[in-house]
Design a protein around this nucleic acid. Structure first.
Lengths: 400, 400
DNA sequence: ATGAAAGCGCTAACAA
DNA sequence: TTGTTAGCGCTTTCAT
């Protein structure tokens, strides 16, 4: 392309190359406001005003502009606009774990809600084994108006960097102590503790707990809640609880429970730190010839769509995705009434969903245990065939 | 804000509002290249060059710039850069149906691959009952370098509009006749036809087919493939096939099959247009007291993670998500070797995954049916406990 | 190898 | 209400 050849040769050359080389996606110029202005016989700022909702412009002028715009297919350039308004209307969403149902659902709702609020989602995925801190500069380069992070731990350095640049950060479904960022979680501790209480009251005495990772705040709190709930009712957790770890996966949990059942004296209840692991536990139990819940109670956490399927009818704690998302969006858009320099922590209660996979105390008794809070007004997600007799909310709180 | 008040009042008013009203997220100015230049004692263009890989700049200058940049936390503004380079490196990804496993997985892989290619994903979700054509102008305003569409039907008007603006479009997992856009699908027709062949050869004579929507190219081709495959082997599809429709949902399929089994003479095989519906069929069959596959064979389409779970062990056709995504990304980045003004259609073969939910012909016979193509070299997805004895590829083709 | 200058397409402040 | 003007932060000629 550098050489100066006769014109005919050059043309020939270009046409040949075009077939193979990756080129800057040859684009026919997009019309600009100036061209519209010329065609409509107005100034370029008039064009800008025509496309700005509250702007001071006469209907006549706006009409002229709009018709000219339509004629040549003009559409304002959101990128150029953002340069001067200093808002891109883009929210960065950073997720790892996109293979987990919970985050997939969360992303779906997040995208919907942010779009409703007139914002766009710039999606980043932390690759397996990848580093969040390495990704964040990329998202900042795109001048996002805020970042919602639902991925592995954020270093406080990186959070401080965002802070300094004035980009608000919301941690979704996790808390990181000492990091200057807002945070939205569900009441993992309270929910898990409720499970412990209900299981003990129903007469279970030997427990299995399937942990995910040790290093997620979510997992840690569920584990603490469960163990502390058991201990509070006199269970010797060292002797009566077997801890397994399964990386939040169905297959890991299935294998773990399979060997647990093959070995020692079997537990009469298993609590999985998420639904996928609980379902793995159910399948393992059945493969081992046990009936659920007659021989073994199984409870999960999340309430993914599959847990309602009749093959499992999983009793579980529902993470209120809609509420988590709503809180996150409000926070990131600055719609909260906290002074913006304060760190806000929102904790949303979870909902106990009783289906068929666990023996539980009689309803009256259970209600007494949980303080009598019932919430039958909470709407059910669409498809939910399994019987479901009772729901209770964990306490859930909202801290400033 | 329109009224002209004395200055003091205005100021007062503004300060009060700031606490409650959504405001432009007060941001401490982000450092610009000019500031770096001043600090480093070089010109602003030098700063630009320092951050441009192949640029002509001395190591000494670059070092000075870098250290100054680090000092004040400078990071190039990708938005501003894109104004002049005319590439945002952003790919718009438009999806509906984000409640379906298949699209969730697809999005996960898409995001990963595009990031690897140095691109960002701007995600758009078509809201339930929403309109794709209404969404597309939004994505174009952000000057995306290309759009990958895995949502409802695209009007040819809208596609032409993209074409005119020089924004390449790839239809993901769908084809729309007469629309000037690239398209990537799996061999839905061939896969479904293979299912029909195998079921008939194994002796099944009464069939159920669970369709999703009537208006997706994917669904249409699966239905055509299945019916034509049956007809080709002498099945009277009018008399021996019951068609149900379940909107691709577990619960819809479960209900449909439940009433099917309650009513007439029962089928001996059911083919679901996706896995979720097939799993709904399995649960319905079991609720009705039937054994799968002894009393009823069930086959699905997609190979979602759940189909490997032992409770279902679903025999199904795997959509090769990785390949679909790879083809889409290549196309959208212009890495294909077709002339860019030609419409490219890629069709990827699907893989028959035999688990335990269907009675099938003996392997030798089956191989004969499918032309003997085996592909045991194809890697398995991570967790796949269920037995699985045989795999065959649909024919799959690649058309220019 | 470097700096000066000209914009990319737009909004916002200012005059008229 | 309208047009004129000055940038937003950057890349890219064009001189030097």
């Amino acid at each position: 392309m550098q050489r100066d050849k006769p014109n005919r040769d050059r043309a020939q050359h270009d046409r040949t190359q075009r077939e193979k080389v990756q080129e800057p996606l040859a684009r026919s110029r997009r019309p600009s406001a100036i061209e519209v202005a010329r065609l409509a016989g107005v100034s370029q700022s008039a064009v800008s005003r025509a496309f700005t909702p509250g702007a001071s412009i006469s209907p006549a002028t706006r009409a002229k502009v709009m018709s000219a715009a339509e004629q040549i297919g003009y559409m304002p350039n959101a990128i150029a606009r953002s340069m001067i308004t200093r808002r891109t209307n883009i929210i960065g969403v950073v997720l790892g774990n996109l293979e987990y149902q919970f985050y997939q659902q969360a992303l779906r709702v997040l995208s919907l809600r942010l779009q409703e609020a007139g914002r766009q989602v710039l999606l980043f995925t932390v690759p397996p084994g990848g580093d969040l801190d390495a990704l964040l500069p990329q998202v900042l380069q795109y001048q996002v108006d805020g970042v919602i992070i639902g991925a592995a731990t954020l270093s406080s350095d990186m959070a401080a960097e965002c802070e300094r640049r004035g980009t608000p950060v919301v941690l979704f479904n996790r808390t990181v102590p000492g990091v200057p960022a807002h945070s939205v979680t569900s009441d993992n501790y309270g929910g898990a503790r409720l499970v412990a209480t209900l299981l003990v009251r129903a007469g279970h005495r030997r427990f299995g707990f399937i942990a995910g990772h040790r290093d997620t705040s979510t997992g840690i709190n569920r584990e603490r809640g469960f163990y502390e709930g058991l201990a509070a009712l006199g269970i010797d957790t060292a002797a009566q609880v077997v801890r397994m770890e399964a990386n939040y996966s169905y297959e890991g949990a299935r294998q773990a429970v399979l060997s647990l059942l093959a070995e020692g004296p079997r537990p009469d209840a298993i609590f999985g730190a998420n639904d996928m692991m609980a379902m793995g536990a159910i399948d393992a139990a059945r493969e081992a010839g046990l009936r659920v819940p007659d021989d073994l109670s199984v409870i999960g956490f999340d309430d993914t769509p599959q847990s309602a399927w009749t093959a499992y009818a999983l009793t579980t704690l529902r993470q209120p995705i809609e509420e988590l998302v709503e809180a996150s969006v409000d926070l990131i858009l600055g719609l909260h009434d906290q002074p913006s320099n304060r760190r806000t922590i929102v904790e949303v209660p979870v909902l106990f969903v009783e289906r068929g996979s666990a023996r539980l105390p009689r309803p009256e008794e259970a209600v007494a245990i949980t303080g009598g809070q019932r919430s039958d007004t909470v709407p059910e997600p669409a498809a939910k065939p399994a019987r479901k007799t009772e729901r209770r909310r964990s306490r859930g709180r909202k801290v400033a």
